[in-house]
Design a binder for these strands. Structure first.
Lengths: 190, 190
DNA sequence: CATAAAGTAGACAAATCGTTCTACCAACGG
DNA sequence: CCGTTGGTAGAACGATTTGTCTACTTTATG
């Protein structure tokens, strides 16, 4: 088995559940049943491990989201499918994403507030990627102001995630979907 | 000078800027120029100090937000004033709130993921208070579904905060205001 | 003025942090 | 068969964590 991958996945689970500074490397090693030297042969520091975790999560998440969108017809249906996907995520119906504890990237920015730090920038890049996904979908539709619409749809998504996490509102995605629908209806030209 | 208050304000500033686990009590004491024994005579632990910080921030923030809303005519203008207030906050034009580093309550929930923990519950209570503020304003208006509208407006607010923090998008509040306007227009009966 | 309360600085304890290190073992290719 | 590679366990290091403690000083009040 790939030790490096095992470290990334274990660290992800612990960071996601308890926060980054709250989890020590010893705890990661214990759970992964991997020796300390092995960790430091693959990663030069805890922060480098975190960076690998963020890249791993980004890849998995974007892959999942885009698949869910592409399962529907391009355009409005695809975008609404994203909010259905969020609903599944919030209610722990997606095995690949681990039990919902908010967004790892938002959580990470809370702990790495300096925008010039590498973790913060990786989080920013992830959000840009999701934004791009939505924007590309909008471009296949007959709508004006795709930039503004993509901004609002992703902002709505962030709001739903935070509401689901902080308030424990399991219906957050369903509510957000309704507003997204309205937004798309009033924006569609044809 | 009230040492207890000085401790709360110093701890707030540091927690807000760097995160909670990243800041040690020694650092708080150094900056506040207060002895360790004094801290532990006022608060039985770091977490109790955090709880006092959350209560302090909650009071200041709700006071500020409701004042900004009440400066406008009741109803739609008051709610839109909230988004103008957010814009000032994101762009560091509000002295009382300290330099923008996202929302302390969202940040805290990232580090205290367990919803049954006291810090998490204090954050939840704060968000409920803001939600109530918006909902009461909606009740003075001729709109149906005040619950749904309050949900969406606060969700939009959370999305704007996260976008401003993670993406560094200083225009997030202005964009959110535009969608809020549209939402209120299409919901108004008269 | 005297006493009590509340502050000070900072040493200290016990634990944990991230990181480096030694010593050893197993598998594999030349 | 021997040396390299990559793994193991875990000791050790120095720094830092939260929290307690001693000893002293300031301040307020009766």
């Amino acid at each position: 088995m790939d030790k490096r991958q095992k470290l990334i996945e274990t660290a992800f689970r612990l960071f996601y559940q308890h926060g980054i500074h709250a989890v020590g490397v010893n705890q990661i090693l214990e759970e992964a049943k991997i020796a300390k030297k092995t960790l430091y042969s693959h990663f030069e520091s805890k922060e480098k491990l975190l960076e690998a975790v963020l890249e791993y999560r980004d890849a998995r998440f974007v892959e999942w989201a885009s698949q869910r969108m592409q399962q529907e017809h391009a355009g409005k249906a695809a975008i609404l499918a994203l909010f259905d996907a969020l609903d599944d995520w919030f209610n722990d119906r997606v095995e690949n994403l681990a039990a919902f504890h908010g967004c790892l990237f938002i959580n990470t920015c809370s702990e790495y507030g300096d925008p010039s730090s590498t973790p913060h920038q990786l989080c920013r890049a992830h959000k840009r990627r999701i934004h791009e996904l939505v924007k590309q979908e909008l471009k296949t539709m007959a709508v004006a102001e795709t930039d503004y619409l993509a901004d609002m749809l992703t902002m709505l998504k962030e709001g739903a995630i935070v509401t689901a996490q902080v308030q424990g509102d399991k219906l957050a995605a369903k509510k957000a979907k309704r507003l997204a629908e309205q937004l798309l209806s009033s924006a569609t030209i044809q």
